[in-house]
């Protein structure tokens, strides 16, 4: 069942120098309970896409076009009060830096009780019990006592667990996680990847996992979308897509990883740099860096769809033998 339907979403930042097209025509569907990995490099628009979905784009940024239908309801231009009803209750977000999410002058328990009572009429005691239960579920030992601790008394990994527990308070239909393990050590990242996946499965929560880390996304997601210069250049089931990418950019990203190369050998790097989003040329934004690009690539970009996979490319790659 489709939970989220995004069509031709455009989020632009209107600056004095012109419109920075951070998200420029993004369309995708998300099923209930599905885990979607959204990958891209800095400036690709992956985070802005996430922020657009939950209505948290700050000026000068603005959703300038397209549609976001969440469970049948249009979210673009939804009244602030209506959006606030959804936010935290049915759509929750986990940010990269839990230190910035949590209020440093309130105890964890206090913030969680406030978050519960924002959407439900529960007594203080019942709200605390709910908070403690969620913290326990996230693997925080001695949760009842930890409710009285302040954020600075937790380690980075534990703080992120608290932030995730808060996102789960109302059993939302959708969690948008923006690089939640980027700042964490590998051993803590692995714990959180495994726990988030299990929690999403168990509660039927759909998850959009935004990350620059292809390997982490491969570990957590069912489906992957690769963004480049504000557009989705490839999407499909995570395994098939990473095993045999169709878009040269996805291939390039995979080839850049030291993990896929012979130790000590030169990595196959993608030439050039990401383009400035102020003045994107017509056609494929990756064309200037692409080894397959020809005259057709600078005029338009076709959408190739096949077997539940999509690539925007004139020259989709065949699987390597």
């Amino acid at each position: 069942m489709t939970l989220l339907q995004v069509r031709a979403l455009r989020t632009h930042f209107l600056t004095r120098a012109g419109a920075v097209k951070a998200v420029d025509g993004v369309s995708f569907d998300l099923q209930r309970g599905e885990i979607l990995g959204l990958v891209g490099e800095s400036g690709s628009g992956k985070s802005v896409t996430g922020f657009s979905l939950i209505g948290l784009v700050d000026p000068p940024g603005r959703v300038v076009g397209g549609s976001i239908r969440f469970d049948g309801q249009e979210l673009v231009d939804l009244a602030v009060t209506r959006m606030r009803e959804l936010r935290g209750r049915r759509i929750a977000m986990v940010f990269q830096d839990p230190g910035a999410t949590l209020n440093p002058v309130l105890t964890i328990g206090r913030q969680m009780v406030l978050a519960v009572q924002a959407h439900r009429r529960l007594s203080e005691r019942a709200a605390r019990a709910l908070a403690a239960e969620r913290l326990t579920r996230l693997g925080i030992p001695d949760a009842e006592a930890r409710l009285d601790a302040y954020p600075h008394e937790f380690s980075g990994g534990m703080r992120q667990r608290v932030a995730i527990a808060m996102a789960l308070l109302h059993k939302p239909d959708l969690i948008i996680a923006d690089g939640p393990t980027t700042a964490l050590d590998v051993s803590i990242q692995a714990q959180i990847l495994v726990e988030m996946r299990a929690l999403a499965r168990e509660s039927g929560t759909a998850l959009i996992w935004i990350s620059h880390d292809l390997a982490a996304v491969a570990a957590v997601a069912d489906r992957i979308m690769v963004m480049y210069a504000g557009r989705i250049v490839e999407s499909g089931p995570v395994r098939a897509t990473l095993a045999a990418p169709r878009h040269p950019y996805t291939r390039g990203l995979l080839d850049s990883l030291p993990a896929t190369a012979q130790p000590g050998a030169r990595l196959r790097q993608i030439p050039g740099n990401t383009p400035a989003l102020l003045s994107l040329p017509p056609g494929c934004p990756f064309a200037p860096r692409c080894g397959y690009a020809d005259a057709a690539c600078v005029t338009d970009v076709p959408v190739i769809e096949h077997d539940g996979r999509m690539a925007r490319c004139h020259h989709p790659l065949e699987p390597r033998p």
């Binding site: 990994g157 051993s187 692995a190 990847l193 982490a216 995570v238």
Partner: peptide
């Protein structure tokens, strides 16, 4: 614990307990 893209791109993680 370190997610690696292997040949079949199946990633299994066995995290260490604790911090």
């Amino acid at each position: 614990s370190s997610p690696r893209l292997g040949l079949d791109h199946a990633v299994t993680l066995r995290p260490i307990a604790g911090e």
